[in-house]
Simulated assay, not measured.
Amino acid sequence: MGYYINLLIVIFVFTYINQSLVFFKLANDLNLMNRWLAFIPFLQNILLLRIINKKDWYFILFLVPVVNVIAYVVFYTKFYEMFDLSFPWIIFSIIIWPIGQISNLYIAFFKKELS
C-alpha cells in the first residue's frame, strides 16, 4: 500500500514541476502578466485560459464537478490546436497522461510558432 502512495506522490510532483515549467515558459514567451501563477497548482488554469485567449472567468468552470472534466478536454483541445498538434496527438495527449506531459514539454521548449 505504501508503494502506491509513494508512486502517486512522485507522479503528482513530476506533473506539478512539468506543468509549472511549461506554463511559465509559455507565459514568458507570450508576454503574459502574472507568470508566477504557473507555480500555484490550481491557478495554473488561469494561465492556460490566457494562453488560449479565453477570459479569466472561465476559471469558474474548473470548480464545478463533472463540468471541470469537460472544461479540461475543451480547453486542452484548444491549447493543442493552437500549436498545430495533429488530431490523433491531441486525443492521445488528453487521454494518456505521459503523452500529454511530453506534448506539453515539446510545445513549450521546442515548438516556436503559434497558429
Score class of each variant (00 low, 15 high):
Leu7Gly: 01
Leu8Phe: 13
Ile9Lys: 11
Val10His: 10
Ile11Asn: 09
Ile11Gly: 01
Asn18Arg: 09
Ser20Lys: 06
Leu21Asp: 03
Val22Asp: 07
Val22Asn: 05
Phe23Gly: 03
Lys25Ser: 12
Lys25Leu: 06
Leu26Thr: 09
Leu26Ser: 06
Ala27Pro: 04
Ala27Asn: 09
Ala27Thr: 07
Asn28Ala: 05
Asp29Gly: 07
Asp29Val: 11
Leu32Val: 07
Met33Val: 07
Met33Thr: 13
Asn34Cys: 04
Asn34Pro: 02
Arg35Gly: 01
Arg35Val: 00
Trp36Lys: 09
Trp36Glu: 03
Ala38Ile: 07
Ile40Gly: 03
Pro41Lys: 08
Pro41Ser: 02
Leu43Asp: 00
Asn45Thr: 03
Ile46Gln: 04
Ile46Trp: 05
Ile46Met: 10
Leu47Arg: 05
Leu48Cys: 06
Leu49Met: 01
Ile52Phe: 12
Lys54Asp: 05
Lys54Leu: 13
Lys55Phe: 11
Trp57Phe: 15
Ile60Thr: 10
Leu61Pro: 05
Leu61Asn: 05
Phe62Pro: 05
Val64Asn: 04
Val67Glu: 03
Ala71Trp: 02
Ala71Arg: 03
Tyr72His: 08
Val73Glu: 08
Val73Gly: 07
Val74Thr: 09
Phe75Lys: 06
Phe75His: 03
Tyr76Asp: 11
Tyr76Trp: 12
Thr77Tyr: 15
Phe79Gly: 01
Tyr80Ser: 04
Asp84Arg: 14
Asp84Gln: 14
